[in-house]
Design a protein around this nucleic acid. Structure first.
Lengths: 201, 201, 201, 201
DNA sequence: TATGAATGAGTATTCATTCAT
DNA sequence: CATGAATGAATACTCATTCAT
């Protein structure tokens, strides 16, 4: 958010790379990756078509760059959340809230993450191998720590449970994107926390 | 011409329609929807390119038909599972197991459902409006019945919780598709049931 | 010539391949290979752009096909000329005349052979490796036979001499293409024969 | 600004012009004219892309300049050879040797002359109108002088014969370029002279 | 003179769909 | 019903050239 508002003043300087990336997010979200035209992205960014190729390898590289750069920022944010909270239960709550708060702020970016990045097994694999795996590991370790502290049930399989939590959050985001109503994604944070911690029973 | 009225009864035919649909599943799963060629599907089905257009409106209609027809069969299956079990907790367990069993049997179909059908907001919306909504309603009503029976916690929001359960299952399937190991999807049924029913605590 | 006049009646049938090839010759000769647009060739051939790709692999394949097919026909013609004449001196005269007669009949094709096919070392190599080598071999063997018969000077190096004869003919063709006057290429046959047989002295 | 008038004298400079021209020869020979990138030439010359446009009008002007400047130097060389030898037969021998010696010394330049300059009728015409015509005139006059001196056969048509000699030399160069063996072009001088003077008989 | 970031015109090729047979 | 030859719209990317420093 902070960096975007700075970018809003494109008076002179460069920031061309960022403008292109933001334009790609908007166009991908609006039209879908396959239906998006590079020239449309260029127009939205206010640069010539060829300029995009000075900063990126091509259309696919735009999508990958969006993923990588926002995912890195997101992981850093999660890291800070974790660092500031040692209680496992509170950690889980804060990660859930951070997840829904972050994504709920940028609908176009959320669409790119939830829809466009899942176009093909190729992207899906990219999606899950490094960065998502890191995220799952954070969840898994938090669960393990909770178990070691005797707070979480010992019978839980940490890896499966971490995926389950991620799946819940992912579905909340998808559902929010598809709902046409003007609701806030973060509104689902409390019921999700309740369910994650206590289950149905 | 003369034979047309006889053939107009599509009850059985040569099974060409089914062969085309199956071929589409395989090719979409193998190559991805956008990269799949209609001619490739025709070759795999053993028919001429043009023949596909006698049974379907086009490439997109193939994808939609795959979704609709398998989803309908799936919903019927879930209906039978539900019908045979009145205890809410057992129902949840059986639905979870049925979900993972069904999808775990057909990897190509699973890929089409998890990856190819999420290509665009258009498909996603289609995906969620009718059939998935039906599925979520089944889950939601089961949760509500459990609450009314005093078995499930009253503080749960049934709609959010139903989505959460769906999200968990969806993530298990996605994770299974992306894992290259030869594991069975249904192996995750027990830990998922445990987590859904009891939560972390 | 004969086959072309048949093609002139494109009433129905196919002959689409030949029409495309002829159109390519005309367009390549007119505009140059690199500046020629595939769509221009399609228009000249009276087919859709895509149709060209049903018969050829692409633009480059058009050029190669023109070369191969006309060169094969030409080599067969030379073979018949050779077969009908056993006297080495007369053979040389007849080959020279055949070369200049054949090429002098089709200016556009001549341009493709003399100019467009020499665009790059790649084409040049293709040009010289198989078919042109065959042609040079015919000349070389004729020279050797003339030497064995005691008719041609024994001190000549057959390979170099064959190339020299080819070079003379090639230059006559190039010069004819570049001359804007309306002269006949075959007019140079007699002086060339005289020079080839007797030299300057 | 102040230095510009001083620099306007292009007499010497930093030799940048020559470096660019040499780089163009190497790159054109390596990659072919159409596939060569101006930026590649700039890199090879050690200058910025834009600098090339301070010395030349564009890519095409580079090719034309290469041709003109080397052709001029070559014609001066032939002029000296001619001037130093009054016997027509010896002149022919010396011109042939000079041609093959000069070109045999610079393979990259030879490729540009034999291949790249024959890309289009436009270049071909340029090629033949002024400078090549001068060269052919030198050959033709030498032949005519030989005829007037009673040394060369009177029945030869000087113009055609001059082209024939040029064609022989041109083919030797082309053949040398295409041969991958490490032979010297000047080795063909003696057999060529023999053939040119005496013919086949 | 020199730079090199930015421009934007230009095009081969693919492939979903049609329709004459 | 079935075929498959023909269609033609649609688009990412390259690179010669420019011009503000």
């Amino acid at each position: 958010m902070a960096t975007r508002s700075v970018e809003t003043d494109p008076a002179k300087g460069t920031g061309k790379r960022e403008r292109i990336l933001r334009a790609a997010i908007e166009v991908f979200a609006r039209t879908g990756y396959f239906n998006s035209k590079v020239s449309e992205i260029a127009k939205e960014a206010g640069v010539a078509d060829g300029t995009i190729y000075l900063y990126f390898l091509g259309k696919e590289d735009l999508l990958i760059s969006i993923f990588r750069e926002h995912m890195r920022a997101y992981l850093e944010g999660v890291g800070q959340v974790i660092a500031g909270e040692r209680d496992p239960q509170a950690r889980i709550r804060k990660v859930i809230r951070f997840h829904l708060d972050s994504i709920g702020n940028d609908r176009a970016l959320a669409i790119v993450f939830q829809v466009e990045l899942r176009q093909s097994l190729k992207f899906m694999s990219l999606f899950s191998h490094q960065e998502v795996a890191d995220y799952l590991n954070i969840l898994r370790r938090t669960i393990e720590e909770g178990q070691q502290a005797g707070l979480f049930r010992a019978s839980l399989q940490p890896q499966v449970t971490a995926k389950a939590v991620f799946g819940i959050l992912d579905e909340m985001v998808t559902s929010w994107i598809l709902s046409e109503k003007d609701i806030r994604l973060s509104d689902s944070a409390d019921p999700v926390c309740d369910f994650v911690l206590n289950g149905l029973l």
